[in-house]
Design a protein around this nucleic acid. Structure first.
Lengths: 250, 250
DNA sequence: GACGGGTAGTTTGTTGAACAGTATGGTACC
DNA sequence: GGTACCATACTGTTCAACAAACTACCCGTC
């Protein structure tokens, strides 16, 4: 790390590396397999709600549609089922994941203990992380002002993802990314009033402020209220939806 | 659900169903794909430590060894990578997962908040579940008496799995099964004195007894001591191991 | 001797075709 | 109404082939 040349030429090696990093940093080469890109495309469709839950994904159909081989499609299916976006039944193929009331209950039963514990961990988190939470809330508020509920929903999820990341466990964070993806699936399905997510924004603001103030006991009850309300609203949302459709699971 | 025949022939339908269930209940038909069975076989080998961490799994080699097609092997690889037993690198294939010191640290950073929260949830858990924890400890003690350290390790993991299941979240339970599998991977690698797991047994006993007594504050500190000791011992175990080998990740 | 370049061999990624086995829906029959 | 049979659609699995990427090795150059 020390310069081995004359004074007129300080750290040429490091300079060149830094230069290269600066120039090449922007360009990003696609290093993904076809199966991954197929999975990306399908993920996009599923998350946007273009493919209704329960809809079977036929291999042959996708082969013609995407112009890739059957094996590649099947590999993409495996990737998606790892994220629980589709379910796989032997000899019956895969279908878009369909969450029922029990799933929502379990999702919140998952969020509750972990997010509550994240509040405890906020005690030792760097102040910068807590300020970032507040910044996310402000982004959500701006989005709400211009009626961009899609973005409000995204910010809500990112907020709680960041909250969980305060724990500092890479595994828990990755696990929560999947749980939050499932939650997004529900968002896409649910019959929702446009202000569904608007109700969460002020709660998140209060939560962020309480964490910054170090008032974790109050933050805990605020979070519990948030989760209770969220579960209630979403459960009601899917309940009006499940009138004549059947569930697919595993 | 009601009998539609005469009185001499009460609920013949139900009787026949019950009879059939009794007779057929014992026999279990193999409803798994070839890929799953291949994955099972490989999982067994990996968990038993037969395949050292970092060892590359060549498709062609396994095709000849197991007499299945390459595609099926690849499908099995996907299943295993979902459980994080192998890692997959594009164009480089898969290799047996190799955990380093950071992984162990992260595993315990994962266990700590969730298991601590499980203690809180033990307050509302049925007494039967807590008694089952105690029964598991007794099994471990018996195994320790006959120097069956393999089984002691298993019982330790099952104990903590059951503890986490007190939370009642199917997703958290499934997540922890994977984390515990990773932990087993470490067990298989680590240079361990035979009494490594023996030290955990009395701790687990105390833990179970404290939970039954409802003394959760004390149980919390007991669990923290257990986790601190576990992390310390395992970290030391892998540290003596990593002298000249290289890590594979992602 | 370190470095870069070419080259051959190995391994993976992907395709396409084929066949067997399983689910599904319908129709005829009792 | 229930059962058996049949045709169809789709999945699970195998096999052969080729392109692309990685690895290792040799070789000449500085």
């Amino acid at each position: 790390m020390t310069s081995r040349r004359g004074d007129g030429n300080i750290q040429p090696q490091v300079d060149r590396v830094a230069e290269a990093r600066r120039v090449l940093g922007s360009l990003r080469i696609d290093r993904s397999s076809t199966a991954e890109r197929v999975a990306d495309a399908l993920r996009e469709l599923i998350m946007r709600g273009e493919m209704p839950p329960g809809m079977p994904l036929r291999e042959h159909q996708l082969v013609e549609l995407l112009d890739v081989s059957r094996n590649t499609i099947r590999e993409a299916f495996r990737l998606l089922s790892r994220e629980r976006l589709v379910v796989h039944h032997l000899h019956r193929g895969v279908a878009v994941r369909q969450l029922d009331e029990d799933d929502i209950h379990d999702i919140f039963r998952t969020r509750r203990p972990i997010e509550l514990m994240a509040i405890e961990y906020s005690a030792t988190a760097p102040r910068r992380s807590l300020l970032e939470l507040l910044a996310l809330v402000e982004q959500a508020e701006e989005a709400a002002d211009r009626d961009d509920w899609e973005h409000v929903a995204t910010m809500d999820i990112v907020f709680h993802q960041r909250l969980v990341e305060l724990i500092g466990s890479e595994r828990i964070s990755a696990f929560f990314r999947i749980v939050h993806t499932e939650l997004r699936l529900v968002f896409g399905i649910v019959e929702r009033p446009p202000d569904l997510f608007a109700r969460f924004v002020p709660r998140n603001r209060r939560l962020a402020e309480l964490l910054l103030a170090g008032e974790r006991a109050t933050a805990t009850s605020e979070l519990e209220a948030y989760l209770d309300e969220g579960e209630r609203l979403l459960t009601r949302g899917v309940r009006v939806l499940f009138s004549g459709s059947d569930a697919v699971d595993s």
